[in-house]
């Protein structure tokens, strides 16, 4: 399934500035140097509210996933990915996916639907071939 249209709001403006130029921005704590998810408003490691935006490497592994079946649409895959920096992101998984995605190494790419912001998706870090 192609990703849908999303518009930015005040909380997501910088994040989508990042996706537009191909950066996956997450939150970095000014106090303890800990990483957190882009939605975080407080550092989960030290509870500081002082968080800055910083680009993630964009690589990680699949924690859990689901193939979603919706009437009128081909099945599509979503998942929770643990970035190498630690934070979890819930996004769509695309590309040539094996049946068992547990711990699959993935990397972020960006789709650019017309009329909306660039949306990050995860795809296998290496081309996967059926055994």
């Amino acid at each position: 399934m192609p990703v849908g249209i999303v518009q930015r709001d005040a909380a997501t403006a910088e994040f989508f500035d990042g996706t537009a130029r191909g950066d996956l921005l997450i939150r970095h704590c000014d106090t303890c140097d800990g990483w957190s998810a882009p939605q975080a408003r407080t550092c989960p490691h030290c509870a500081s509210p002082g968080l800055s935006w910083a680009p993630a490497a964009g690589t990680g592994k699949v924690v859990t996933w689901s193939v979603v079946h919706t009437k009128g649409l081909p099945p599509y895959t979503v998942g929770i990915v643990e970035l190498d920096e630690g934070p979890w992101l819930q996004l769509q998984l695309t590309g040539d996916l094996p049946e068992d995605l547990a711990d699959l190494r993935v990397r972020a790419t960006f789709e650019h639907p017309e009329g909306g912001e660039a949306v990050p998706v995860f795809t296998p870090a290496r081309v996967w071939k059926a055994p």
């Binding site: 399934m1 990703v3 849908g4 249209i5 999303v6 518009q7 930015r8 709001d9 909380a11 997501t12 882009p38 939605q39 689901s66 979603v68 599509y76 979503v78 819930q90 996004l91 769509q92 639907p113 909306g116 949306v119 998706v121």
Partner: peptide, 20 residues
């Protein structure tokens, strides 16, 4: 539903249902 912001990112990614 087509919310903006973080909810919108989840929805655009196909994650808009408690089922998922």
């Amino acid at each position: 539903r087509r919310p903006a912001g973080w909810q919108g990112l989840a929805a655009a990614s196909g994650i808009y249902s408690a089922n998922t």
